[in-house]
Simulated assay, not measured.
Amino acid sequence: MFYTDNKLQFPVRVETPDPQFARALQQAIGGVEGEIRVAMQYFFQACGARGDPKFRDLLMNTATEELGHIEMLATAVALNLEGAPVSIKDEVAADPVASAVLGGLNMKNLLSAGLSAMPVDSDGVPFDMSHIYASGNIAADMTANVAAESTGRVLATRLYNLTSDPGMKEMLSFLIARDTMHQNQWLAALEELGGSTGVFPIPNSFPQEQENQEFSYAYLGFQKDGSPSAAGRWSEGPSVDGKGEFVTVSMKPLGSQPVLGPALPNSGAQAEQM
């Protein structure tokens, strides 16, 4: 069950409306790094969370917070659009194509939403939920969440540097801070699950003796001349999960060239393939 009191999670104010910045903000709503993505990701992870209920609580609380971030950003988009100078709106009416280019206005925000936000990215492409990762494995999900918050924070800092509006900087400063917390809370959850030596390799429930352990910690190089790959922490020394030793191997083909059977009749293939 969800509740709302119709108030914003954090103040949203726009001193100088900017249609072009409204378009940029759409990426933070419906882009692959945006708030719809993380809200739905944490929500579906929570719905499928098994085991200690505190992880479900953590996920659902954060999903609910992210819904509030969508509300904030949608309000910011609308304020940047509805307060745009009259001349910009006149240009839209007179020559929509030229206005879209010169004014930076996303025409969907005008034509489909009446100068309001939409569940789309900065190019007007609808968010299609294809970037929602909810595996049912709590450690895999927490690891994916660190990446989601990291790319979200990168986007928020870019938006912060794109605007000179004090109100927008204030709002984005809050969102950047929340991204900092969320990165840390997912890492803390992984630590509570056992840290790198307890969590990895994911899933830790699969017996490693059933995998081909010759390749479990081998960094494979594919340079055609057999020259060594660039060395790094990943190429030698103890593995991060504490269960093996990194080695570097110049990979050579272990299998032969694949040979397929003839094409089936009536499969649409050429006669020479049958």
Rank of each mutant, 00 (worst) to 15 (best):
E91V: 07
N266G: 09
E66N: 02
S173A: 15
S122H: 07
P126F: 09
Q257K: 10
A24Y: 11
M251C: 12
R56P: 02
M181K: 15
E91K: 02
M107D: 00
G232W: 05
F174S: 14
S235G: 03
E170L: 14
M107E: 04
G195W: 08
A188G: 14
N145G: 11
E149P: 09
T4L: 00
R153I: 04
G83L: 06
P265F: 15
K243R: 14
P119V: 03
R158L: 13
A147W: 06
A156E: 06
H69F: 06
F55M: 04
P19F: 02
G195N: 09
V38G: 04
K89H: 14
A93C: 00
H131I: 09
S173M: 14
D241Y: 02
S216R: 05
A144G: 01
D95G: 05
I29P: 02
P238F: 01
P96W: 15
L79A: 15
S239G: 01
M40G: 11
F10E: 11
A148F: 10
L155F: 11
T64D: 06
D52V: 08
T143S: 15
N109C: 12
A140V: 06
A231D: 12
F206I: 04
E191V: 07
V259I: 11
M181P: 04
F174I: 12
L220W: 02
V154P: 00
R178L: 03
V146M: 04
E214P: 00
E192V: 08
G226C: 03
S150M: 11
S112G: 01
R23D: 02
V120E: 12
G31L: 05
V32W: 10
E149D: 13
R23G: 08
E211H: 02
